[in-house]
Design a protein around this nucleic acid. Sequence first.
DNA 1: GCCACCGGTGGC
DNA 2: GCCACCGGTGGC
Length: 319
Amino acid sequence: MHQGDAPLVTKISKVKPIKGIKKKRQKSINGVLIDSDDGSRPIDSSQKELVVYNPGTSDAGQASSLPSSRAPNHPSRVLSSVGAFAVQCAACFKWRLVPTKEKYEEIREHLLQDPFVCERAQEWRSDVSCDDPADISQDGSRLWAIDKPNIAQPPPGWERILRIRGEGSTKFADVYYAAPSGKMLRSMVEVQKYLLEHPEYVDQGVKMSQFSFQIPRPLQENYVRKRSVRFSNACESARVRSSRAVKPADVNPLSWLGPPKADTDLQIDRPDPPPTSVCDPEAPHPWQTNSPAAESAAGCLSSEDMDNNNAGPRRGPQG
DNA sequence: GCCACCGGTGGC
DNA sequence: GCCACCGGTGGC
């Protein structure tokens, strides 16, 4: 691919059931981090990636600022699905753990225009460089997922929450935005409605373009169940062909990230135009193409425990 | 009753 | 086939 392009990777840890937590929910947090090779090579020829980070895991550093409004009396009812955040150096392809979700989001926001290199990790780790060993490798002990680059950071006081679903679900993950009030929003439509009902946020500068419900793709093949085909036994074969997990060769640069469809009708704001100039316009697009690419991603599961993340926001989507 | 999670589906 | 959206529901 092209230097300067970079997919993100989300690494999710498997979560062990925790007493007192709803069984049903634990299931979907079973992250499992997987990956495709030893991590010494880029997922794609010149990609750096981001992995996700769990504040509870020691190797990933400290969780930082989560709105306190969100930690409240909800003792670990909600677990974070993300195990750690990491980004792959565009120069040496080594993985660097990113200490906080906020830093991760900051890097991700401009990843295409501003590719990550090890030196940047000096922001949180002195003297680190490409000469140092990777912080983490794709050793099969975790579930890895390719995140999308150039997703705007959430507005101040808001939180973007990624929840990984259990293996075999019809969908890999869900994104929610938690408003400062704790209200959970699960689509652009809901965000728009909320902003219309709370113009104060618009006054504060909150824009629709600061929201993205794009979810990462799992590196593990078949993590996501194919939509069943009714009235036909094509179902099984469809399954075998697999859900489209991201594979190494699939991780092509994202040349642009279009606005969510729902945004088109929104009045409040329009996303900025995609940064098309950054990448080779002819480059395939991992998140949006169906390029058949390599089928080789290995899928090792692990059962790495993790702590609760910040107890997520409490309310969500109204049904 | 609440709400986190899951599945279905329509539009593309 | 993918994905945004949202309704249903089971565990609490």
